[in-house]
Simulated assay, not measured.
Amino acid sequence: METRGLTIRFGGHVAVNAVSCAFRAGELTCIVGPNGAGKTTYFNLISGQLPASAGQILLGGEDVTRLPVPEKTRRGIGRAFQLTSLFPNLTVFENVRLAVQARLHLGLDLFSVWSHHRKVREQAEACLERVALADKRHQPVAALPHGDQRKLEVGILLALQPRVFMFDEPTAGMSVDEVPVILDLIHEIKQDRSKTVLLVEHKMDVVRSLADRIIVLHNGTLMADGDPAEVIASPIVQQAYLGVAPPDGAGAGNAEASHG
Rank of each mutant, 00 (worst) to 15 (best):
G60V: 10
G60L: 07
G60K: 06
G60Y: 05
G61L: 00
G61T: 03
E62L: 08
D63M: 08
V64P: 03
V64A: 09
T65P: 11
R66P: 12
R66F: 12
R66Y: 10
L67Q: 13
L67D: 06
L67A: 08
P68I: 11
V69G: 03
V69P: 07
P70Q: 01
P70S: 01
E71F: 06
E71S: 07
E71M: 06
T73M: 07
T73E: 08
R74W: 10
R74A: 11
R74I: 09
R75G: 05
G76W: 06
I77R: 10
G78F: 02
G78P: 04
G78L: 01
R79G: 04
A80N: 05
F81D: 06
Q82F: 00
L83P: 04
T84G: 06
T84K: 09
T84E: 09
S85I: 02
L86K: 02
L86R: 01
F87G: 12
P88G: 05
P88A: 09
N89V: 09
N89Q: 10
L90C: 11
L90I: 09
T91M: 01
V92L: 04
V92K: 03
E94Y: 04
E94D: 15
N95I: 08
N95F: 00
R97C: 10
A99T: 04
A99I: 06
V100L: 02
Q101F: 11
A102H: 10
A102Q: 15
R103W: 07
R103S: 01
R103N: 11
L104A: 03
L106A: 06
L106C: 05
G107S: 04
D109C: 15
F111L: 14
S112N: 08
V113P: 03
V113H: 14
V113A: 14
V113D: 12
W114K: 13
W114N: 11
S115H: 12
H116K: 15
H116E: 14
H116V: 05
H116N: 15
H117P: 05
H117K: 14
H117Q: 14
H117A: 14
H117S: 15
R118M: 11
R118F: 06
R118W: 09
K119V: 15
K119H: 15
K119D: 15
K119Q: 15
K119E: 15
V120C: 07
V120K: 00
V120A: 00
R121Y: 08
R121N: 05
E122I: 05
E122R: 15
E122D: 15
E122N: 14
A124F: 09
A124T: 02
A124S: 03
E125N: 07
E125G: 01
C127E: 01
C127V: 02
C127F: 02
L128A: 11
L128E: 04
R130S: 07
V131I: 14
V131N: 00
A132P: 12
A132D: 13
L133F: 07
A134W: 12
A134G: 09
D135R: 10
D135L: 05
R137H: 11
R137M: 10
R137T: 01
R137A: 14
H138A: 10
H138P: 02
H138E: 10
P140A: 06
V141R: 12
